[in-house]
């Protein structure tokens, strides 16, 4: 087969993919690009992570509600707020790391290394968020239980279960992808 690789080089060079359909698609895509604003892959990734920065900001705003409305201890409300600030800072760091380099135009090996770092940091931040968040939520259920509102506890447990069932597979997938990219780069 590897002997055939050399023979197929010339044929590969002459290969034409898509033909007229490709030309039509190029025309349509160019029209779309000139008519409306589009985001690059890198911009969309940064935008997605910016949502978590904003979400992190929400927690300190909600913290007084825990103290004054749900009558949770003051230390808990402070911890809740600090958790939000920590998540906000961590995700803001990651957004900045994504934006500071042109990921798409850089040499492929550099882009892959950066991609691996981004995925690994995404995963670490997520794991930290899951661990701290789960601990805080468990404590919250404990405080709510004192108020005898089973509906709230039930809703909280469902939310926690759904959140974990979505986040954990994503973390594992991210880590697998990162490991695979890292291995393919380190060979040779």
């Amino acid at each position: 087969m590897t002997d055939n690789l050399d023979q197929l080089k010339e044929q590969w060079r002459r290969l034409s993919v898509g033909g007229q359909r490709l030309d039509d698609a190029n025309r349509r895509i160019t029209d779309e690009l000139t008519r409306r604003r589009v985001s690059t892959t890198q911009q969309r990734l940064a935008k997605r992570l910016r949502k978590y920065v904003i979400l992190g900001l929400v927690l300190p705003v909600l913290a007084p509600t825990l103290y004054y409305v749900l009558e949770c201890p003051l230390w808990f409300a402070i911890l809740y707020g600090l958790f939000g600030i920590l998540m906000m800072v961590a995700n803001a760091f990651l957004v900045n790391y994504i934006r500071e380099a042109d990921l798409i135009s850089m040499p492929v090996a550099d882009a892959v290394r950066r991609a691996v770092n981004i995925r690994l940091w995404q995963t670490r931040i997520r794991i930290m968020g899951i661990a701290c968040g789960a601990a805080l939520l468990a404590s919250l259920f404990f405080f709510i239980a004192d108020r005898n509102e089973p509906g709230l506890i039930f809703a909280g447990i469902i939310g926690l279960a759904v959140g974990l069932s979505v986040s954990i597979p994503r973390c594992l997938k991210n880590m697998r992808l990162a490991r695979r990219l890292e291995e393919s780069l380190s060979e040779g």
Binding site: T41, L45, L103, I104, M106, A111, V112, L181
Partner: peptide
């Protein structure tokens, strides 16, 4: 790079 790393 689009194909390898960042396609969404």
């Amino acid at each position: 790079n689009t194909c390898i790393t960042w396609h969404r």
